[in-house]
């Protein structure tokens, strides 16, 4: 549905987005993941024509964004929730959007209701909104025109845990009904749980892409791992190694290169009581993310300590 081809954006000699190509398919949530300054926002801004590309092309449903008539009815966009007139009320912000798109006022109430901004809050000026409230307002604005494509830049920013869960459900539902969702984040676990497909970007380049499982398989060299904890870890480790599985201590338990079902079977045979048994994906994906974007991370293991010099 969204097709990015050879997209490049340079600022002088600095290349913010470096010849990237990818596609977002209909009925799926595509996550766009990368550390701060990786080029996510720039890419999204080019998608909706706010930033002209240096090279390359983006089409949505086969059309350039500018060729979509009344684009708010087809593509919902949230780029920066704080880019709203501080002096307008939340309701007025939606009112302007609704009028531009030619929607009835009732739609505003529906959207306010959807994002749980009550009537009193909607009457406040955006200046007095918290970050999370601005984000909710931005999401309401993006959904206003009942679009079939959603482009959301860090939509979970500032949302409370309940809000994040709500949004997850909302976007999933949207994709299930045939919508296309493209959302960015710098937090892996945020995207991991909703995205059907992930695109990892670092320093303006795509470093990996695929479904969660595809990425994981790449991360562990195709092998599955299991995290297990039992009342007798040493005994269990010995039994597993006997069967030819690789075992490493991990926290209070073990990481085993095997399917969970296999680990459970071995424990049952040896009559060892398990207290925890699960697929060992989490760490794998997180590590993959850190590894792939390693040279694009800002952190150099420097911990601020003591007095500032001078």
């Amino acid at each position: 549905m969204i097709k990015v081809e050879g997209l490049t954006r340079a600022y002088g000699s600095f290349i913010a987005v470096d010849h990237i190509s990818f596609e977002c398919r209909q009925g799926r949530v595509t996550g766009f993941l990368g550390p701060n300054g990786a080029g996510k926002t720039t890419t999204m801004r080019v998608m909706v024509g706010l930033t002209p590309p240096t090279a390359g092309d983006v089409t949505i449903g086969g059309l350039h964004y500018a060729d979509i008539p009344n684009p708010g009815r087809h593509v919902g966009v949230l780029l920066d929730a704080s880019a709203q007139h501080e002096g307008r009320t939340g309701r007025e912000v939606l009112e302007i959007g609704a009028r531009t798109m030619g929607l009835p006022s009732s739609r505003i109430d529906e959207m306010l209701d959807l994002v749980s901004l009550d009537a009193r809050e909607a009457k406040r000026r955006v200046r007095n909104y918290s970050l999370g409230m601005r984000q909710r307002l931005g999401i309401a604005h993006a959904l206003l025109g009942d679009p079939s494509v959603l482009i959301l830049d860090e939509p979970a920013n500032g949302l409370d845990p309940a809000g994040i869960r709500w949004m997850r459900g909302l976007l999933k539902g949207y994709a299930d009904r045939g919508g296309t969702v493209f959302l960015s984040s710098h937090l892996l676990h945020e995207v991991e749980q909703i995205a059907d497909e992930m695109i990892l970007i670092g320093n303006g380049k795509i470093v990996a892409r695929g479904t969660r499982d595809e990425l994981l398989r790449g991360a562990t060299g195709g092998a599955t791992t299991t995290l297990v904890t039992s009342l007798d870890n040493d005994h269990l480790a010995g039994a597993l190694e006997e069967k030819g599985h690789e075992v490493h201590p991990a926290g209070g338990g073990l990481r085993v290169t095997a399917e969970p079902v296999e680990v459970g079977r071995v424990a049952a045979e040896k009559q060892i009581v398990l207290t925890d048994l699960r697929a060992g994906h989490e760490g794998g994906l997180e590590e993959l993310f850190l590894e792939l974007t390693a040279d694009t991370q800002r952190e150099h293991d420097v911990v601020p300590t003591g007095e500032p010099s001078a």
């Binding site: 024509g49 706010l50 684009p71 708010g72 780029l79 880019a83 501080e86």
Partner: peptide, 18 residues
């Protein structure tokens, strides 16, 4: 100018790219 100082131009021009 208020569209630029308040950054609402972002919304305005996404709803009407022309």
């Amino acid at each position: 100018s208020s569209e630029w100082s308040q950054r609402t131009a972002m919304t305005t021009f996404t709803l009407e790219p022309h």
